[in-house]
Nucleic acid binder design. Structure first.
Lengths: 246, 246
DNA sequence: CGTTTGGTTGAAATGTGTCAAACTTTGTGG
DNA sequence: CCACAAAGTTTGACACATTTCAACCAAACG
C-alpha cells in the first residue's frame, strides 16, 4: 500500500470527465486527493457486507463485482465493475454497507477517505454533481438488471449482459472493436443472472450456435452486433453514456 | 393544477427529515419551493419513457410504480412508490428518462422545476445531500430486487416484497400495526416480480396457507411477522431506515 | 505429470408459464 | 337499491424452462 503518483488517477479523471466537463481547477482538485493504492488477488473482498465505511474507492485496474451473500451460502452478483468505476460511492451516505465487493481478477484499487471526498464536493459543486451522477448511473444499471431478470429467459439475459459489458468497456476505451476482456467464469455469470451454472453453459452454447458471440481465453467477441442487440432487446439508453450534466 | 398551500408539503418535508436533520432555514427553503400539484386517475402515466424531463415530483397521495415497457408490450414494474417518495429525482441529472412512472391508485403529485431544485441544492448543501441520499435509498432497493429475483422462488419473492412494502409504510407512519394499504392487483404483482399472474395467485395462496399474511380489500395484514421475515429471509438493513446523514 | 479449476453432457425432478373457463368482487347507471 | 358490466381472482390440465446431480472432459498450473 503506498501513495499513488498523480498520473495513475487517469481512469478516474477520465470517468468523471464523461459525467460532466471539468475545469483545470477541478481536475487539479481531483488529482490532489490523497489516495491509498492497494492490490488484491483474485477472489478477495475489497469491502465486506456489514462493514462500517470510512472511505470509498475507485477501481484502477481489473474486474470486480458487488455481491450479496445469502444465509444459505449462495451469492448474488448485483453488478460488475470495470476500471474507472467507483462501486461504493454510496457509502459516502450509507455508512453501513449492505453489500460486499469482491475481485474477479487481480485488482488495483485506490481508496480515498470520505472526509476528503466530502471536502472536495463542498468546494467544487460540479464534482459533487459528477459523483452523484456516477451513483445514478449505477442505479440505472440495477434497474436494467431488474428488467433483465423479470422479462428475459436465460439466453436473452446472458446476451443482454454481454451487450452491457461490451458497451461499458467501449465507453471507457477498453474494447477492441467488438471484442473485450471478459474474465468471468460461468459460475460467476450464473451468480449474476440468477441461474445454475449448468444452464448458463447451455445458454452460452445457444448464443454460440446462433453465431452471436464467442468466448475464448477470457475474451468476449461479438460476431453479429445488430443481431445480438435485437436478440437481447438491448437499448443502451439506460447507460446514459453520451449525456453530460449541466 | 394549482399552487399548493405550504402545509401539503408535509409528506416531503417529513421524508427529507428522515434522511438528515433540517434547520429552520432549510425547512423554510423547502416549503418555499414553487410546486404544481396535479391529480391523476388510476392507471395514468405521470412520466412516460423517453420524456425529456424539466421537473421532478413528489408523490403526495396514492401509490405509483416505475415501469419499463418492452417492445413485446410486456411491462416490468421496477419499483413501487408510496406517499413521500420522489421517484424521479434522478431526472435531475439524467435528462432522458429511461423508465416511465404510472399510478396504481388515484394519485396527487407535486411537481417542482429542476432549476428550483438545483437552486435550493446550491444554497443548502445539506438539502442536496438529502436528495442524493434519497436516490441512493432507491438504488439500494433496486439492488435488493435484483437479489430477490436471483435468489428466491415465487412465494419467497412475494413474501420479501410484502416485508419491504410494510416496512416502508411503517417508516413513514402509514401503517396500522402490522397491516397497511396494499392496492396492487395480482397482475401488477406479477409484473413486479417477473412471474405470471396465475403463479402469483398460487404463491399468495401458499403464503396464506402458511398463516403468514392475508389480503382483504386492498389491505395487507401480516399475521406472523417473525415467521414471514424468516421465510422471506428479509433483512431491512438495505432500507437504511434509521440512518441519517451527517 | 498430476492436480485443480472450469467447462460440458445426460436424465430425471421441480418450478413456472400458458390457456381457457368459472367464479367473485367492485363499480356504475337505471 | 338492483342489475349489469367490468375488473380481478381462482382453478385445472398441460407445455416448457430451469434445477439438480453425477459424471466426464479440457484447459491451466505448479
Amino acid at each position: 500500500m503506498d501513495i499513488l503518483p498523480r498520473g495513475s488517477l487517469a481512469p478516474i479523471t477520465r470517468k468523471l470527465e464523461t459525467l460532466s466537463a471539468l475545469s483545470d481547477g477541478e481536475r487539479n482538485a481531483i488529482a490532489a486527493m490523497p489516495i491509498q493504492v492497494q492490490d488484491y488477488p483474485r477472489g478477495s473482498n475489497v469491502i465486506s457486507e456489514g462493514d462500517h465505511s470510512t472511505r470509498c474507492f475507485a477501481l484502477i485496474e481489473g474486474f470486480s463485482c458487488t455481491v450479496k451473500l445469502m444465509l444459505s451460502g449462495e451469492r448474488q452478483i448485483i453488478a460488475f465493475h470495470i476500471p474507472g468505476d467507483m462501486p461504493d460511492l454510496h457509502s459516502l451516505h450509507h455508512k453501513i454497507v449492505d453489500v460486499g465487493i469482491q475481485t474477479i481478477t487481480p485488482c488495483t484499487v485506490g481508496f480515498v477517505r470520505h472526509e476528503v471526498v466530502h471536502d472536495v464536493c463542498a468546494r467544487y459543486p460540479r464534482i459533487a454533481t459528477s459523483f452523484w451522477r456516477a451513483t445514478l448511473d449505477e442505479a440505472a444499471i440495477s434497474r436494467a438488471w431488474v428488467t433483465n431478470f423479470g422479462q428475459r429467459k436465460a439466453p436473452e439475459r446472458l446476451a443482454h449482459l454481454a451487450c452491457e459489458l461490451l458497451s461499458r468497456m467501449q465507453a471507457v476505451g477498453l474494447s477492441d472493436g467488438q471484442a473485450c476482456r471478459f474474465p468471468m467464469t460461468q459460475t460467476e455469470l450464473a451468480d449474476a443472472i440468477g441461474m445454475s451454472p449448468v444452464h448458463v453453459n447451455r445458454s452460452l452454447q445457444a448464443l454460440r450456435a446462433r453465431g452471436l458471440i464467442s468466448f475464448k481465453g477470457q475474451r468476449l467477441q461479438v460476431l453479429n452486433w445488430p443481431a445480438l442487440k435485437i436478440f437481447a432487446s438491448f437499448d443502451p439508453t439506460y447507460l446514459h453514456l453520451n449525456e453530460k450534466s449541466d
